[in-house]
Design a protein around this nucleic acid. Structure first.
Lengths: 248, 248
DNA sequence: CGCCCCGTTGAAATGAGTCAAGCCTTGTGG
DNA sequence: CCACAAGGCTTGACTCATTTCAACGGGGCG
């Protein structure tokens, strides 16, 4: 299956020249296409995992379960994200991943990707750049959980998802598909379900969000940003290397 | 100044063969050595930054200030860490970095490192691997802030620092230098200073830590791990590439 | 010598979690 | 096609962990 239009390609096209040669090399290492149904476990905590899964469509969550039964969601996985990062870089998975909607993805073994990096170092750099982006998102979550009030947290999270979906062409200007139950949102934001519910009502009352089952609408993005102290992240470009001159 | 014994080299030696050739190439791109006094700002929020600073010795913190005056510390920077990650990959710094002890480091421009990645792709892969490690640490912080109790948070954080220092040979088996004020610890863990103080007293009362000003001793690491549900992270090795065969 | 930072303690206020119940929707199997 | 089950959403009352505010003491540094 061709990678044209794959959200991962959309994403890295901002960072490197995805010409025919590069696209072909990437396509060549893909081992197979896969799908997973809602609620299907993609990675189980403690298992070995050595594949990179490039999500075509659908949503998933990375999470950790604690002894006392509490769950913390580390990150949500959107189209264009790589499920194996950073799990595949460890001996054993340090957390779990489960699909929250039906999901489709392309798979390649980590070792193949690494081989590709030796041949075309740009792919290694792109991965580093994506990792930097990931780190920035992660940092925002830390600020969220540590020092923002619940209502700011929720606002910030919605803006983040919206921006990430826009980046891969999976959202409209003021609305997007949000198939997360309140249980999931609560576990992302470190809140209890009842409290999250009340906080959502506050946002609705302030006319900052309009939500109907799976559809989330943001009629006042500027207001939300002010509330959440949200600042969009702008990845810098990868400095040009010899590859560019060699025309690879 | 030679890089021999540099904690960053110690760290990446687990991941790649730091033979004379690789060591020399790395040394060649270093632009200068630097030092910073305690309390010196290394990166200011919103400024441009395009350098990688490889910390030789000393401690620093990455943090974010909110409108209401609250501060969240995103991560602490220890010997062997790279100050420019991920800040240098963005147009403008999304957070600030300040030294909390006297600090010494080696500097190279990001563009030089990228050039090195084109010549020797292993350096790019190492950066990706380190980013994966960073992401895992970040994920733990999220679990900490979102779902662990204050005493578990503190225990987890101390174990993390201890392990990270051990990795670069900067800690003893059961003790290490911890030059963080309670104000800093509180802002790492998302707590208020008075509460952090009481939580520390709890840990002391349980005989899980012994601390005198800057020295932190962990007499019962197994107990601490049990309390914090701490699991050490094991980075997998980078799959071998053609470079190995070419003997670079 | 005095100042400032840091650690410590106490008391009061409050935000958020827990528990519990009811309702609505969705999906499923008879 | 209907009935039931299960999951998700919403609400209320209660509890308590944590923050806030305030004050004091010690110690290092200028």
């Amino acid at each position: 299956m061709p990678l044209t239009g794959h959200p991962f390609v959309t994403k890295i096209s901002r960072l490197m020249d995805m010409n025919a040669g590069n696209l072909d090399s990437l396509e060549a290492i893909m081992e197979r296409e896969g799908t997973a149904a809602k609620r299907h476990d993609l990675i189980v905590h403690g298992a070995e995992h050595r594949d990179l899964c490039f999500v075509r469509s659908g949503y998933a969550i990375r999470y950790r379960l604690l002894r006392n039964g509490k769950r913390q969601i580390l990150n949500v996985i959107l189209p264009g994200d790589v499920i194996g990062f950073p799990v595949s870089f460890f001996d054993r998975a340090t957390y779990a991943v489960v699909a929250v909607s039906n999901l489709s993805y392309s798979v390649c073994p980590l070792s193949s990707y690494v081989r590709l990096c030796y041949e075309r170092p740009q792919f290694g750099l792109v991965l580093t750049w994506l990792a930097a982006r990931e780190a920035a998102i992660c940092a925002e979550h830390i600020v969220n959980l540590g020092r923002r009030t619940p209502i700011e947290r929720l606002a910030h999270f919605l803006l983040e998802i919206h921006d990430r979906l826009l980046e891969v062409g999976c959202a409209e200007q003021t609305r997007f598909d949000l198939p997360f139950s309140q249980g999931i949102l609560a576990d992302v934001l470190g809140l209890s379900v009842p409290h999250l519910n009340r906080v959502m009502q506050e946002l609705r009352a302030e006319r900052l969000i309009v939500s109907t089952s799976r559809l989330m609408e943001l009629p006042d993005i500027a207001g939300l940003r002010r509330l959440a102290q949200y600042q969009p992240v702008d990845l810098a470009l990868i400095p040009a290397g010899p590859t560019a001159q060699r025309g690879l």
